[in-house]
Design a binder for these strands. Structure first.
Lengths: 232, 232
DNA sequence: ACCTGAACACCGTTCAAGT
DNA sequence: ACCTGAACACCGTTCAAGT
C-alpha cells in the first residue's frame, strides 16, 4: 500500500523563513503567499464544499487576479493536497504522565481525527484518493507507535492499523455525506415510507433514521479494539 | 441516518414493459433506452473512471446526439445513481439448505459487496454520497435479517450494521483509490524512502507497502464480527 | 414521443506579456 | 520574482426547433 499521486510539484522555491510580518495588512490585500492561499482554500472549502473550490473564486477571495495562483501552486490538485494536510495537523495525546493507557490514547487519537474531518466535511472523502501528507503520516506513526508499545506484535500491526483506518474513514465519509444533505432529509423520509414493505427489517430497526452517530462510532470502535488489542 | 438526494426525477414516463426486441440491431444503433444508457455508462465508468463520464462522451458511445440523453434522464447525477445501483445487484447467499451459518452468510455478503465495488472502482467512493438505491437497500435488508435471525438484539442491530458498513466502505474506498494510482506507485516508493527517519514505526512495519489487501480485510472483519455477534 | 444543433455560462490551464 | 488578461479547449445544461 504505497503512497501515491504526489501532486504536481510547483516550480516555486521553498517558502523562505518567515521575515517579520508587517503586523497585518489594514484591510487591503496582504501579498499572496502559499500560507494565505491554503488558509483561504480551507475557508472556501468549509463554506462551499469540494465543488465550491474554483481557482477563479479562490483568487477572488484573495483579491488577486485569477491566474496569480499558478505561480505559487502547480494546479488545483495541489491546492487540495495542501488544504487537506493543513487541516490534519495533530499534536499528540498531551502526554499526561499518568497511566500507560494505550486504549485511551488510541481512542483519543481516532476521535480527534474523526472530529477534525467532520469539522471540514470535504476532507474525509478527499483523504483516500490523495497522497498521504506529512500530518497524516504523523498521525499514523503515532498510532502505530502506541499500538506497538502496547504489545501488538509487528506481525499484527498492519492489520490493526488498516482496520482502524478503514473503520474511521468509512464512518466519517458516511457521516460527512449525510451532513451535507440535510436539505434532502425530508425527501428521504418520504421515500422511505413507501419502502417499508420491501425492507421490513430496516424499517423495524429504523436503521436509516438512527441519529446517534457518535455513540455508534464509539461502540463499533470498541468492538474493533477488543479484537485488535495486544494478545492477552 | 436518512436516505437522501433522490436525484432529480426525470419527467419521462415509466419505461414500458419490454416489447419483443428486434433481436439486436446489426451494428447500427439500437434505439436509445434507459437500459442502454445505464449499461453504457457503466462501461464508460469502468474504462475511464468518474471523471471520464461526460454526457457528450456517453452520447457518442451510444451513437446519439449529445443532447438526446436529456430526454431519458434528468441530469448527470441521475446517470450516476442509476449506474451505481445497477452495479450493486445481489441475489442472496444461494441458500444452501445446510447449517444455519450466519457468520458464513455475513462474510459472503460483505465479500461479494466488496468484490462488486472493486470490479467497478468508481462505485465505492460514489456510494456514500448518493441516495441508497433499491439494490443497496436490499443488501442492507438481507444483512439485517441475517444478523437479527442469528440473535443480535434489535437494540444492537443498528450499531452492528453501521459498523460493518463503515468497515467495508472504508476498506473498499481506500483500496479502489490505490488501485487507480498504480502509475504513481514508483513515485510513492521514492518519496517514502526520504521519510523513513520521521516515521520509523511505519517504516519498520512497512505499512504503506503491505499488499495483502484481501487478507487484511478478512482479518479485520473477523475482529468486528467477534464483537458484533449475538451475545453469548 | 423522441431526438437534435446552436448557444450560454461556466471551468482549468497555457501563454505571452507586463512590472 | 511576481502578477496579469486574453485566449483555448473544454464542460453541463437550456431552449427552440425539428420529425
Amino acid at each position: 500500500m504505497a503512497a501515491k499521486r504526489s501532486g504536481t510539484q510547483s516550480k516555486r522555491p521553498q517558502r523562505k523563513a518567515a521575515s517579520l510580518q508587517p503586523v497585518q495588512e489594514p484591510r487591503g490585500e496582504a501579498p499572496l503567499s502559499l500560507e494565505r492561499i491554503v488558509a483561504t482554500a480551507v475557508d472556501l472549502l468549509d463554506a462551499e464544499g469540494v465543488d465550491g473550490l474554483k481557482m477563479r473564486r479562490l483568487a477572488d477571495r484573495l483579491g488577486a487576479g485569477a491566474m496569480s495562483l499558478y505561480w505559487h501552486v502547480g494546479n488545483k490538485d495541489e491546492v487540495f493536497d495542501l488544504a487537506l494536510d493543513a487541516v490534519l495537523e495533530y499534536r499528540g495525546p498531551s502526554h499526561r504522565v499518568e497511566a500507560q493507557d494505550w486504549r485511551g490514547d488510541v481512542v483519543h487519537m481516532l476521535e480527534d481525527w474523526r472530529a477534525v474531518m467532520l469539522r471540514h466535511p470535504w476532507s474525509a472523502s478527499l483523504l483516500p484518493r490523495r497522497a498521504l501528507g506529512p500530518n497524516m503520516l504523523n498521525r499514523l506513526e503515532l498510532l502505530s507507535r502506541t499500538l506497538s508499545g502496547a504489545g501488538v506484535s509487528d506481525a499484527d500491526l498492519n492489520v490493526a492499523i488498516w482496520s482502524l483506518w478503514n473503520y474511521v474513514m468509512g464512518a466519517t465519509i458516511t457521516r460527512a455525506s449525510f451532513d451535507l444533505s440535510d436539505e434532502d432529509r425530508a425527501a428521504g423520509q418520504q421515500r422511505l415510507a413507501g419502502l417499508s414493505e420491501h425492507y421490513p427489517t430496516i424499517e423495524r430497526s429504523r436503521l436509516l433514521l438512527d441519529n446517534d452517530w457518535d455513540g455508534a462510532f464509539r461502540k463499533g470502535l470498541d468492538f474493533l479494539l477488543d479484537g485488535l488489542g495486544p494478545r492477552r
